[in-house]
Design a protein around this nucleic acid. Sequence first.
DNA 1: GATTTTGAGTTTAATTATTAAAAACAATAT
DNA 2: ATATTGTTTTTAATAATTAAACTCAAAATC
Lengths: 300, 300
Amino acid sequence: MARTDERFRSAYNRLLDICSSMDIGDQLPAETVLAERMEVSRTIVRSALQKLDSDKLIQWEGRNKTLVRKPQSKHRLEAAESALSTEELEHRFFEWILRFDVPAGTSLNVAQLSRQFGVPVHNIQELLAGLSRLGLVERRPRGGWSLLGFTSEFAVELSEFRMLLELNAVRHLLTLPPEHEIWQRLEALKREHEELKAVLKDHYHDFSLLDEKFHSAINSVVRNRFVLEAQKLIKLIFNYHYMWDKRDELERNAAAIDEHLEWIDAMLARDEVQSEAAALRHLRRSKETLLQSLRVHKFA
Amino acid sequence: MARTDERFRSAYNRLLDICSSMDIGDQLPAETVLAERMEVSRTIVRSALQKLDSDKLIQWEGRNKTLVRKPQSKHRLEAAESALSTEELEHRFFEWILRFDVPAGTSLNVAQLSRQFGVPVHNIQELLAGLSRLGLVERRPRGGWSLLGFTSEFAVELSEFRMLLELNAVRHLLTLPPEHEIWQRLEALKREHEELKAVLKDHYHDFSLLDEKFHSAINSVVRNRFVLEAQKLIKLIFNYHYMWDKRDELERNAAAIDEHLEWIDAMLARDEVQSEAAALRHLRRSKETLLQSLRVHKFA
DNA sequence: GATTTTGAGTTTAATTATTAAAAACAATAT
DNA sequence: ATATTGTTTTTAATAATTAAACTCAAAATC
């Protein structure tokens, strides 16, 4: 068979809803109106009307579409569970790779991944084609794909790229006028860091959320689609590593909070040199942590 | 039907060549050896051998494959002209967009592009899936794709991203030791710029090549897959604009050469402040040129 | 008579089915 | 033992298929 009639099914159900809100004997609006309202083509509207007619829910003659009886729940068509969206698929793919430490060089095959994630082969193809542009996977000469990423070189390069982007964000941030909302956000973040620091022993798990919030704030001052796209990947990878590298979590988070605070203070003082220095210190340590967690996993 | 037997046909022809270079009564090598030499799977080798056998060109019994008679040109299978490679396709796609000023928001349809470029639908799908990751195209809700890029915002963001990357490269370059090969390359580039400047009136078209060479040299000191990937796109777009924006080409190139020379001199003098300033001056003007050429094309 | 709406036919595109090709495995000959 | 072949299984590219969108002419309504 060819494409699914999922679009038809959901449109039909929406049409039932429209019928429900009408009285028996009322006329349904014109095909074009329905098509517009339901955001589908007239073709779908017509086939849905046809089904309503043959199910004796409406009487359809020319442009008269009279509601004969109110639809009941038994009339609804069950919608096939919607497949994962592109973003969900991507998320689950990374989750799989990071959680199971799928090693670089692993050959990926489309059919197997398609089964594993319960999505059409097509979607996997597109995902891989996209990731190949980020240098994460590679098409092998005689068909098939091969996972490249998540070697330590990858982590180093990603970290360095992250430094590049965040240092740029910091430089840009320091040129913003005092009335810019970022300064308030930084003040708030400073308070949140101090609050968490006070109760860290019992809440050190909360840091990863605060960490993301902080870095997002810094990066938010740069509006650039290329930077944004890169940050998506960076966030994903760093976050996953935070999630399961549990060694010395308390100590690491305590150190990170102090580094953040230094960094925030330097920015609030509009001190360019100190800000960059503090940013570098934190980003370098972050890179080391990522690298170390990769090593630990490799030899675990 | 499913996939073409193009691979088989070309393998068969190559096998005929091998037979031609042998004498009647000779034995063909083992299947694995043939497969390796011809860079195809044994499956193909075996089906080609089968055809040779049934065409009475060889006698095949177990591991004896005896050449019975020499193949003639009539035995050759005609091969379908080979399709474009992924990179060629990408190149031609950008060429089309930039040359015909395909406006942002244009709906792209896979079947039509497939015909236009003479490649299977499949390849177009993959190309678009990849480009969607760069924010150049977008999948539309009701199927199909839509071109996003090449608005002036895109040009601005691309230019700014380029600045970010090249300034980073400059900073990194200045930390390299005197024995690094980049310094010789810069000296050579300086000479080339001066030579071209002397004869610019008659050879101003040669600048775009030198320009690419110069920027590639600067960027070559950064080894990072994300940076590299971004630079591919940047190079492509800037180069195309150079290619057909012919207004004031002589003046623009003369100015650019002077900017490059200032920049090179500052780097050779290991002057960090001057290098960055010169780089910024050139990159800012470059951005303006790109923007202007976009405007001109839009209202032409 | 102009406009809206419908009917029918055509085109486009997503997905499945199919087949070529590759890979894996097992058996046999050297 | 090792090299080679025979067989089976798996994978991936593409053609066929069908849902959905689009187009245009005819008919109905105002």
